[in-house]
Amino acid sequence: MDKTIASAREAIADIQDGARIMFGGFGLCGIPENLLRALREKGVKDLTVISNNAGSIDLKAGGAYGLALLFESRQVKKFVGSFPGPVAKLDYFLGPFQSGELELEIMPQGTLNERIRCAMAGLGGVYSPVGVGTILAEGKESRTIEGKEYLLELPLHADFALIKAAQGDRMGNLVYRYTARNYNAVMAGAATTTIAEVEELLAPGAFHPDQVHTPGVLVQRVVVGERYERRV
């Protein structure tokens, strides 16, 4: 079994305008840098992006990093996440948000995780106590279980999940490094197609099976990242 693709560009070749895409990473930690750059170059538009944050910016130098690249180039129609962060103060995010061009769906971080996990695990939703009594509970079905109030949170599906791992093999088995595991380990398998970029490709069997964080069945494509900035 060989799921490797020669380049990030080829790995995302079938992503079209209007696609729903999940992005692993937290801030800039563990983001699929090369796949993100390839998407920016391809110029696909009207994307729905699912991510904890909206990328990062360098306030002094003015650079856009991670997912911010796709907002800067106005490729995003809807952001689904938990904490857009400093990118949300910039004209290319704030402007379209205020004019209604950019749609936002904000939810608690743990709820974002569980909704993604539902999609991966084939669940129709979960009942979570988080957000009860707040404006984020509006419009949600609530239910009292064992005397405590919960909100029904529905699965969050996507066409593609773009994730990043430190190491992988051609079968799609992945190993993450430190806190770069974050959403990458959750999003693997939550989309129709999961594309993993890895810093290092090892031969099958190079990892001890106990070491594998994401089993290869959850990953459809593996690509070795061409270039890493690895910004903090």
């Binding site: 938990s82 904490f83 857009p84 962060g85 949300a88 103060k89 995010f93 704030l94 948000f97 205020q98 936002l104 904000i106 939810m107 608690p108 971080q109 743990g110 709820t111 106590p129 988080v130 957000g131 009860v132 707040t134 984020l136």
Partner: peptide, 16 residues
């Protein structure tokens, strides 16, 4: 506010 909202983990932390 006209600011973009962001909740992060705050609601999870206080609920749990």
């Amino acid at each position: 506010g006209k600011r973009v909202p962001g909740v992060g983990g705050a609601m999870d932390l206080v609920a749990g």
